[in-house]
């Protein structure tokens, strides 16, 4: 064990999902098993660190001024979907079910975790809504206490231009039966039932 290796392990251990053992394995893999690929990894990290930034409009990851979604003229400008984090945006994109635009808050209100309104990407969102193009605001935040409180905070601050606010549904997973759902999910699915036609 050398000081440089120790430092590398320490840095790797900071990453999400990486514990002490995995950090050691990764460090040894990089230095011992595949040292030839190390420069590639270093340059990829450097390049990403230099070129990836936040989209000036929505907060998504971007390499230009605007992210690919914001610069895509074919997306519906009338719908705006608010999500907590970039992975949430990616998940909705993968579904292919949504053709509107996004806004990433980069978190949700939580005084316990020291997340205040000014830590969230809220100002630009309100500015976008005030601009008037958006007709429907879709709140796709999680339905825990903090997610709901953030939704409430946001709706209290909407500009008075009659934007319609909707909340995504919470309930049974598709293809899953009623039998295997837990009681809390079933309750929310029943509360969110809709007219059948």
């Amino acid at each position: 064990m050398t000081p440089a290796l120790e430092n590398l392990q320490k840095q790797l251990k900071q990453l999400p999902g990486i514990g002490y053992r995995s950090a050691e394995r990764l460090a040894l893999h990089l230095l011992v098993s595949q040292p030839a690929r190390l420069p590639e990894l270093v340059s990829a990290l450097e390049h990403a660190a230099r070129s990836v930034r936040r989209c000036a409009v929505c907060g998504n990851l971007a390499e230009e001024e605007l992210c690919p979604i914001c610069s895509d003229g074919k997306r519906h400008g009338g719908q705006l979907c608010v999500v907590e984090n970039v992975p949430d945006l990616a998940a909705i994109e993968r579904s292919g079910a949504y053709r509107g635009r996004y806004h990433v808050l980069h978190g949700k209100l939580s005084p316990i975790r020291d997340v205040a309104p000014e830590d969230l990407n809220l100002g630009p969102l309100l500015a976008r809504l005030a601009a008037g193009e958006v007709t429907e605001l879709i709140l796709a935040l999680s339905n825990d206490v903090e997610g709901e409180a953030t939704c409430h905070y946001l709706t209290e601050r909407l500009p008075a231009n009659g934007v319609q606010v909707t909340r995504i549904g919470f309930g049974l997973p598709s293809g899953g039966g009623v039998l295997y759902a837990d009681a809390v999910t079933l309750k929310s699915a029943l509360e969110g039932r809709r007219h059948y036609s």
């Binding site: 209100l109 005084p111 205040a116 309104p117 206490v145 709901e148 409180a149 953030t150 409430h152 905070y153 209290e156 601050r157």
Partner: peptide, 12 residues
């Protein structure tokens, strides 16, 4: 001091 956040969590 943050009345707006208080209001959001009081609603919940």
């Amino acid at each position: 001091r943050d009345a707006a956040s208080l209001s959001a969590f009081e609603h919940e």
